[in-house]
């Protein structure tokens, strides 16, 4: 697999040309220092606990990833096969930087790390994500999260 500019021209063009949502507003929430924030990760890699049903295309849902979930218990069922997975296979943090965030919290760079992180299927249609976003925001608020780190594939 490769960076976008290294892909076959037709494939790179298809990715570049993908429809993206355009929003009329630009929300921007200002907060305090990083050292006072409680941070959660949201990954769009379609990762989840081993044994759960796959992240199916079109199912606009999120999966919970407890921060203590061992790396060997996490699998990836993203719909696309057109990106590298060998990095994820070698090191979970290549996709889902839970250990890096934990270290930053332990070092005091970040105030705290969430007890639970989340994953979605990034290939789904964002136009269908209102209910998903409401539910996810609810969960984040209940866990007193005031900053979210989004990680794609």
């Amino acid at each position: 697999m490769a960076r976008l500019e290294d892909l076959m021209p037709a494939m790179a063009e298809r990715i570049r040309g993908m429809e993206c949502p355009v929003y009329p507003s630009s929300p921007f929430v200002v907060g305090g220092k990083l050292s006072s924030r409680r941070v959660a990760i949201v990954s769009s890699a379609g990762i989840h606990r081993r044994g759960e049903k796959p992240m199916m295309p079109g199912t606009n849902e999120f999966r919970e990833l407890p921060q203590s979930l061992p790396s060997g218990d996490i699998v990836m069922t993203h719909v696309s096969s057109n990106y590298d997975r060998t990095g994820f296979q070698r090191d979970l943090n290549t996709v889902y930087p839970v250990d890096r965030l934990r270290e930053l919290a332990q070092d005091g760079v970040v105030g705290a790390m969430s007890d639970t992180h989340y994953a979605v299927m990034g290939a789904n249609d964002p136009g269908q994500w209102d209910a998903l976003t409401d539910q996810l925001t609810d969960r984040l608020r209940k866990d007193s999260i005031d900053a979210v780190l989004f990680s794609p594939v």
Partner: peptide, 16 residues
């Protein structure tokens, strides 16, 4: 991913 960040921020939580 960028879209979900927009939607979460719209609901009041800061994102990067």
């Amino acid at each position: 991913m960028s879209a979900l960040a927009h939607l979460i921020e719209q609901r009041g939580i800061a994102t990067t």
